[in-house]
Amino acid sequence: MNLTAESVAEALVVNVDEERIDAAVAIQFKDRMRDLTAGAGGRIILDLGRVIFVDSSGLGAIVSVMKFLAPAHRLELAGLTPNVGRVFHLTRMDSVFPIHADVAAALHGAGHDL
């Protein structure tokens, strides 16, 4: 599972360099997120711009990450591709996460601008 993190301004941006977050990698995704975000101070933005498919297992993993980061952090999402956005919408998880059009929008604006 190819995840990398970089500090940008006050935020930790986690890039998902994978096309899928699905049942095959859900556990790896959670473990990697736990490692990458350990000790992070500010905002945490998950860049999903390269992800073209998330199933309910992948969505569950993202929700799980959001829960273990709380209350110190609120996990923010950026760059949802259309089919990924639809899974969040159909499960109403789009109302649970701050969702940004892309990382630049997340850094320069705030809130729900998808």
Binding site: S56, S57, L59, G60, A61, V63, S64, M66, K67, A70, P71, L90, T91, V96
Partner: peptide, 11 residues
Amino acid sequence: RLDDLPEGGWG
């Protein structure tokens, strides 16, 4: 509560 959000069961 965020803590009570489901982590699956949407299938």
